[in-house]
């Protein structure tokens, strides 16, 4: 992995976001004072239960939602500044949960071209970007197909290609694997790894703990606030707190905790199954 100079690409300053809800007197607070700096080229996983505010946070990053309090900056552009909205959305692409409801066109390559077309890029250059993006997600062979003929994992890869073709600096994934089967999930996670290697900043919103172990940093959200924040090895020291928030710890972490209670010496910081197996069988 290339080492990048530490540079903040997404800056979230004391963000507050409130929804008006039917049948309730006041607005309900989805995000309650969140501050985060995300470094260029990093891979940050944001986890939390449904309703913890993680998806709202994602939508605040690329100006689909605007802060009620505080501010969000992407590559120096402030999201609440109406003039820079397209600069922000081009820099911070987004992949959503439902693979079906984010594809616009009935032909795969036309869909991938949708973003670059909106940016007003010249047709020859769109062609190059579409072909490269489809190649990157291994869907070039399916470029003439209709999305409804594809599996969930394939559709999600097309959606990723659609974002990649816009050449964003960061991509925010809002529970991209929640509706996929294990195979589709593996396909999508593999592509995330490749994008990270290419130096694209990734923010992955998920509630699958296993998907976070490859991240550089884990942010756990609870009730609209950041509950835990740090590298995986450090965050997973707090297994008790994680469980109390209605989340599961990854298998290796949970097992390590249980074996420690049984009196075995298991070092902290083993978060993947591979690391745990390597330690146990050393």
């Amino acid at each position: 992995m290339a080492k990048h100079a530490e540079r903040t690409i997404i800056r979230i300053e004391d963000l507050v976001f409130e929804y008006a809800r039917d049948g309730e007197p006041g607005p309900s607070r989805a995000i309650d004072g969140v501050s985060l700096d995300i470094q260029a080229g990093s891979f940050t996983a944001v986890i939390g239960r449904n309703g913890s505010g993680k998806s709202t946070l994602a939508r605040n990053i690329n100006a689909l939602l605007l802060p009620c309090g505080g501010a969000v900056y992407v590559d120096g552009f402030k999201t609440s500044d109406a003039a820079s909205i397209w600069e922000i959305r081009q820099r911070a692409g987004m992949v959503f949960q439902n693979p079906d409801n984010q594809l616009v066109s009935a032909i795969v390559e036309d869909d991938v071209a949708f973003g670059p077309e909106n940016l007003g890029i010249a047709p020859d250059e769109i062609r190059r970007r579409v072909d490269a993006a489809l190649g990157a997600v291994d869907m070039y062979g399916e470029r003439k197909k209709s999305p409804h003929m594809l599996s969930g994992g394939q559709k999600q890869r097309v959606a990723i290609a659609g974002v990649v073709a816009m050449r964003p600096k960061c991509i925010i994934f809002d529970e991209p694997t929640a509706m996929l089967d294990p195979q589709g999930r593996a396909e999508v996670m593999k592509i995330l790894g490749e994008l990270h290697d290419e130096g694209i900043t990734l923010v992955l919103i998920t509630h699958f703990m296993e998907e976070t172990v490859g991240a550089d940093r884990i942010v756990i959200m609870d009730a609209g606030r950041v509950a835990l924040d740090g590298p995986p090895a450090e965050v997973f020291r707090h297994v008790g707190e994680i469980r109390a928030m209605g989340l599961d710890a990854p298998l290796a972490v949970e097992l390590g905790e249980r074996l420690r209670k049984r009196g075995h010496y298991i070092p902290y910081g083993l978060v993947t199954v591979e690391e745990m197996v390597a330690y146990l069988c050393r």
């Binding site: 959305r89 081009q90 692409g93 987004m94 984010q102 973003g115 077309e117 909106n118 890029i121 047709p123």
Partner: peptide, 16 residues
Amino acid sequence: AMEARCYRGGEGRTRL
């Protein structure tokens, strides 16, 4: 999803 992909109507749009 369309908004997130910078869709803002037909103006200034190119085609593949």
